[in-house]
Amino acid sequence: MTRKSRRMYVLVVAIALLASATALVLTALDDNITYFYSPSDLKTKQVTVGRALRLGGLVEDGTFEKLDGGLKVKFSITDGAETVAVNYEGILPDLFREGQGVITEGSLNEKGEFIAHEVLAKHDENYMPAEVIEALKASGEWRGDEEQITE
């Protein structure tokens, strides 16, 4: 075993690994990226029914209601300009309330309603998800300019 042939072996293994890792990453990226949409984006852009996406904004005041004994809920997410109705079944995060910035993950159904399977409100009540801030700024609804608090 000479130094040259050892280097060859190492190189072959490393390249093989790199190639398979790249292939894995590329296919995984294709299937598993979740795009973020604001309610306005959802109205203006073409969105495939059933494609997983994230929808974020403020929970609109007075839209939150519980259906069938409390596990199914319905609320609207707004960025000031547009509003989208969201259906969700499950327990909401501790910090969920009307007027709060949230991110939901799920997909659109045929009726144009958003079916969420996950609702995220961050751990800290001063915290506003950056995506939501951006969405609010884009629609001209952003007011606060307090320092954003992160973990």
Partner: peptide
């Protein structure tokens, strides 16, 4: 390229096989 997020399925399909 827009705002995206990458969740557990990505890692299950890349990190785990490696």
């Amino acid at each position: 390229g827009g705002r995206v997020s990458i969740g557990p399925p990505f890692y299950n399909n890349t990190f785990v096989p490696v």
